[in-house]
């Protein structure tokens, strides 16, 4: 278990149908293109995808929407991808919108073993519908519940063979949280380095959260 670097064929075997899958990235920065393509090659259907947005047409998670592989989308924003909006208006996809701070904190809660959290965001809006409101002091909060997945597909800038991860600039976004909140965590790394070559203080996601690693992630360069 000290070397988690593998190949795409092994990853294909580990990913099976009917799954809930988290995909990292904010408007495709930090999105694992090669792992998204792996889902397409496997021709998976009826997926539940948890991702912040559905990127721009033809990129990252957008490719899954365009191929009608997604039954349910849990996200915060779809305004940059007209096809997601079209499928939503046509009733072809179920979309659950979360405020972005709620979205990421729900993922963090799942990964951190919490039963949920109280947020003031969304009180008095559609977001609060069907949710428990709890007053603390003189303020109302929504009880938001954890959000977890079977699989997380994420991208790192650097990974050592053991799975310690480093992200770069705004590509970090949701990834460290998603790495905590899925049963199987698969990393696409731009750079794979020998275990021991990363300074422990530099590591952003500890290796214990990571299961499999493949090289990739440089399509956007």
């Amino acid at each position: 278990m000290m070397d988690k670097v593998t190949n795409i064929e092994e990853i294909k075997k580990s990913v099976t149908a009917g799954k809930t899958i988290m995909i990292g990235g904010f408007l495709n920065v930090g999105a694992p293109e090669k792992l998204v393509d792996m889902l397409i090659e496997k021709d998976m259907k009826d997926l539940t995808i948890i991702t912040n947005d559905t990127s721009f047409p033809g990129k990252g998670p957008a490719k899954l929407i365009e191929r009608k592989m997604v039954k349910k989308l849990i996200c915060t924003h779809i305004g940059t991808n007209p096809e997601t909006g079209r499928q939503l208006n046509a009733g072809e996809i179920e979309v659950e919108f979360n405020p972005q701070g709620t979205f990421v904190e729900r993922i963090r809660s799942a990964g951190a073993g919490l039963g949920g959290f109280l947020t003031p965001t969304g009180v008095g809006t559609l977001v609060a519908q069907g949710k428990q409101i709890i007053s603390v002091g003189d303020r109302d909060y929504i009880l938001e519940l954890p959000l977890k997945a079977d699989i997380a597909l994420i991208k790192a800038w650097k990974a050592d063979r053991m799975g310690n991860l480093v992200y770069r600039r705004s590509a970090r976004n949701f990834t460290p949280l998603m790495a905590m909140a899925a049963e199987l965590v698969i990393v696409e790394a731009e750079n794979i380095v020998e275990t021991g070559s990363l300074d422990p203080d530099e590591v952003m996601t500890p290796s214990i959260l990571v299961d499999m690693i493949i090289p990739g992630g440089y399509e956007n360069e």
């Binding site: 947005d53 996200c75 915060t76 924003h77 779809i78 305004g79 909006g85 939503l88 208006n89 979309v95 919108f97 405020p99 972005q100 701070g101 709620t102 003031p120 965001t121 969304g122 009180v123 809006t125 977001v127």
Partner: peptide, 15 residues
Amino acid sequence: KVVPGMGGAMDLVVG
């Protein structure tokens, strides 16, 4: 009609 989603707006306005 248009349902882009709230993105970060709800948190920003509250916070």
